[in-house]
């Protein structure tokens, strides 16, 4: 028996990366800004999208891809706001992969402005998978605690934005906002941080302005 050693040097997630790059290119060509939302379950991704839809839908067209292990519930909540939504049910998988988004591609209207992808609620696994997004946002809700950036560094180092949600609860929680900000910026100095509350509406306008300016930037790059 002849033995042979071969040097491969291939990234294990190389095929996901390749599909993601194709998705990003196709969406950018259509002038669509794509946002991937990551967080632990219950941090408020769907609620943030509901609030975002209320603000954006008068002037812009948006759609949402929802990722969950089970149920169509999140997509139904988004549709109730008059926004097209597709539900990916992973049937147990803890994250979305680019090929799952790619399968929906033929259904995505070409005249969209924003495509949001709500990942499966999990602060670990989704961080490893590029879905073809332009902006990755990690949400941290105040009841989860201010120590999450250090505990789950990958989700924070690979994100562009940190959205701290449920800010209205800070007065009744042992949540140290400055510690959360400081530690988030230690793991990723480039993070853009938004402090939001879906209840009071605080910070939602800044988030919307950021999205709109990123959309204009993308389209200027295309022009």
């Amino acid at each position: 028996m002849e033995k042979k050693e071969i040097l491969v040097l291939e990234e294990l997630l190389g095929s996901n990366k390749k599909i993601a790059a194709e998705i990003r290119q196709k969406l950018e060509e259509k002038g669509i800004l794509t946002i991937n939302l990551l967080s632990s379950p219950g941090a408020g991704k769907t609620t943030l999208l509901e609030k975002t839809a209320e603000k954006l839908k008068t002037d812009y067209k948006m759609a949402v891809i929802e990722g969950d292990i089970e149920t169509e519930r999140d997509a139904e909540r988004i549709r109730a706001k008059g926004i097209p939504a597709w539900q990916i049910i992973t049937g147990g998988a803890c994250h979305l992969e680019a090929k799952m988004v790619g399968k929906l591609f033929p259904e995505i209207p070409a005249d969209l402005d924003f495509l949001f992808i709500e990942n499966v609620g999990n602060l670990v696994c989704p961080a490893s998978y590029d879905l073809g997004e332009n902006i990755r946002c990690v949400l941290l809700s105040t009841p989860e605690g201010d120590d999450k950036p250090k505990k789950y560094p990958k989700a924070f180092t690979t994100s562009d934005c940190l959205i701290i949600t449920k800010s209205d609860l800070i007065p009744v929680l042992p949540f140290d906002l400055e510690r959360a900000r400081k530690e988030a910026l230690e793991v990723n100095p480039d993070l853009k941080i938004f402090l939001t509350s879906a209840v009071s509406g605080a910070g939602i306008n800044e988030w919307i302005e950021h999205l709109v300016s990123a959309l204009h930037e993308l389209r200027q790059k295309n022009a």
Partner: peptide, 12 residues
């Protein structure tokens, strides 16, 4: 940050 398949040994 890598997650890389560096090399493999095969029996031909």
């Amino acid at each position: 940050t890598e997650l890389l398949l560096e090399k493999i040994e095969l029996e031909l």
